[in-house]
Design a protein around this nucleic acid. Structure first.
Length: 573
RNA sequence: CGGGAUGUAGCGCAGCUUGGUUAGCGCGCAGCGUUCGGGACGCUGAGGCCGGGGGUUCAAAUCCCCCCAUCCCGACCA
């Protein structure tokens, strides 16, 4: 491709609307343009990269035996009403009516449609197992679109749905998808972690998320450096780090003492005011359920409550009791477990299990208790793990200290079970002639998100550094001066050779200064750069630069073919 | 939806406090010339409903009201 005939509108200055590097680089390198909040046009270069990512995904999916199809974007409400998600999905769904007033939506996901398809055409165990996928646009009216392609309202996703007659087959496909997703990210060349995750709105039994590691990722991960344990921050299991030395011996309980702590309501203030370490304080957090019953959870002052864990433990929907109807009569900021109202159940996090002589709120405005001890001073209904991990916590498998990382969720696989097949009637006759609902799984991977995530992980201060797997071109051929006939001829010849070899080459034949070409080249991030300039005039040499590490070599112009072949072999594609 | 901010040429911004000629600057864009290995230089030029509507005023980019859009921080997600 000749640069002069292509369309790569690069930007010299950083657009003000972008906070994240990948977003800024997407705009600057001329990959996308925003059309509305969370809605983007893909320009030729961005489109080319998307197609490369799609192809890798398609190949890896096909290898597993999955079958590609295409489902409609516009979906009728009746299927969603059947699955009970028409209301459940809420304002996140883009809705529309046809001329007859019938309700439709722009598909945010496609469980309903494939399951309906299965209902129509899967009749027998002989039709199973089957795994159907598509690469398609999705619409979600996100509460807050963010960071360009990373959280868009219209985005491209590969989604697969498996139908099986039994759990074993279903697990088998789940495993295959797990491997395929790992394979996709490996082949693209991204560093990632697979993490146990929550199932969210899609529902189902268990699930894994595929996280592309990036400093500015939105997801907090907890990873063990020594074994392969890694988990979503909120979902993580871990062993609490040792309590520090000041939490004394249970035998040396001191006399409980009330201290005056005027206007000291936060943990930080308390630490300063009492001049004691933060884990000598026990905080008491109040939660309420739907029936307005209040629960108190105690945990170490340096820890954060994980409501999800409490909800699971109690099997209840809970929220922080912020509403005045709950807090009236309680001294907010001074709540504690000693002499608490009988109606409030107290649960304690294991982080305070061996603590003694700690500080808690005195249930009286402007007062705390010192030297509080369990079980002398209060009762606990139950103990459990209710906190998020903190620095120093240990791996539950091998005991190594856990590391905290950030990532971008690129893919998510779910075991759905019969949730949709039962509601939408995806049934089949099994080997005994009995009617059964299909066991389903669903597997999503964000195509446009991977594009952005790759930039987020692979860039430097000059621009993008594409891995050759998804780079829009393999070679950027630059001639430093197109008005020099000798250079121009040489460049034209090299271009010709590369084109004939089938190498994807972007030939910068623009009549602009060399500096501009170099800057654009860095920005766009094509893996290899061939420069035809003074070295050529001096001795028929071409400068070769690798974008990734900025290293250079020079080769003889006659050696181009061999060089390319070597490179392709080294990178095996 | 709550909190914070912004909207002036394709991009980045100044002007607004204290209303007053034809609304500026840098980059980019077009033409010509000189340059040519890291965003060169000179000259000439095109490009604006100052986000929209309403109001105050002799006079509004500037003051007031309403609306819209966009971005950032929180709960959702590939």
């Amino acid at each position: 491709m000749r640069y002069s005939e292509y369309f790569i509108p690069t930007l010299k200055e950083e657009p003000v609307e972008s906070e994240l590097v990948s977003h800024s680089l997407c705009l600057r390198a001329g990959l996308v343009r925003k059309i509305a909040s969370g809605i983007y046009s893909f320009l030729p270069l961005g489109f080319k990269i998307l197609k490369k990512i799609e192809n890798i995904i398609r190949e890896e999916m096909n290898k597993t035996g999955a079958i590609e199809l295409l489902l409609p974007v516009i979906q009728p409400s009746n299927l969603w009403i059947k699955s009970e998600r028409w209301d459940e999905y809420g304002p996140e769904m883009f809705r529309l009516k046809d001329r007859g007033g019938r309700d439709f939506c722009l598909g945010p996901t496609h469980e309903e449609l494939v399951t309906y398809l299965a209902h129509l055409d899967i009749k027998s165990y002989k039709d199973l197992p089957i795994n159907l996928y598509q690469i398609q646009v999705k619409f979600r009216d996100e509460i807050r679109p963010r960071h360009g392609l990373l959280r868009a309202r219209e985005f491209i996703m590969k989604d697969a749905y498996s139908f099986c007659e039994n759990e074993e087959d279903s697990d088998e496909i789940y495993k295959k998808m797990y491997e395929a997703y790992s394979g996709i990210l490996e082949r693209i060349g991204l560093e990632f972690k697979v993490v146990e995750a929550d199932t969210g709105l899609i529902g189902g039994k268990y699930s894994h998320e595929f996280m592309v590691l990036a400093k500015n990722g939105e997801e907090q991960l907890v990873c063990c450096p020594d074994c392969d344990y890694s988990a979503n921050f909120e979902m993580s299991k871990f062993t609490y780090k040792e309590a520090s030395s000041n939490s004394g011996n249970p035998k040396s309980c001191r006399e409980i003492e009330e201290v005056h702590t005027p206007s000291v309501t936060s943990i930080e203030e308390l630490v300063k005011f009492l001049k004691m370490p933060v884990n000598n304080i026990v905080k008491t957090i109040l939660l309420n359920d739907k029936n307005n019953k209040i629960y108190a959870v105690l945990l170490s002052g340096d820890r954060e409550l994980n409501i999800g864990k409490v909800e699971k433990f109690l099997n209840l929907d809970l929220e922080m009791a912020n509403d005045e109807k709950f807090t009236a009569g309680l001294s907010i900021g001074y709540v504690g477990p000693v002499n608490t109202k009988k109606s409030i159940e107290i649960y304690a996090d294991n982080s305070i299990r061996n603590r003694s002589n700690f500080v808690v709120g005195a249930n009286r405005k402007n007062y705390h208790f010192k030297n509080v001890n369990y079980p002398r001073d209060f009762t606990v209904k139950n103990w459990g793990d209710f906190a998020n991990p903190i620095q120093g916590d240990k791996c539950i498998n091998c005991g190594s200290e856990l590391k905290f990382e950030k990532g971008i969720e690129a893919g998510h696989i779910f075991k759905l079970g019969k949730k949709y097949s039962e509601k939408l009637g995806a049934r089949f006759l099994d080997r005994n002639g009995k009617l059964n609902s299909c066991i389903m799984g669903c597997y999503g991977i964000g195509v446009s998100r991977i594009l952005a995530a790759a930039i987020e992980q692979l860039h430097d201060d000059r621009g993008i550094t594409w891995p050759s797997s998804i780079a829009p071109f393999l070679v950027n051929l630059i001639t430093t001066n197109v008005r020099d006939k000798q250079l121009l001829n040489a460049a034209e010849n090299v271009y010709d050779v590369l084109e004939k070899m089938g190498v994807e080459v972007l030939y910068d034949d623009r009549d602009v200064s060399a500096g501009i070409k170099f800057k654009d080249s860095d920005l766009i991030g094509i893996p290899i750069r061939f420069i035809i300039g003074k070295k050529f005039l001096e001795g028929k040499k071409i400068d070769v630069e690798y974008r990734k590490n900025c290293s250079r070599t020079e080769i003889d112009i006659e050696d181009i073919k061999r060089f390319i072949k070597d490179f392709i072999n080294r990178n095996n594609f």
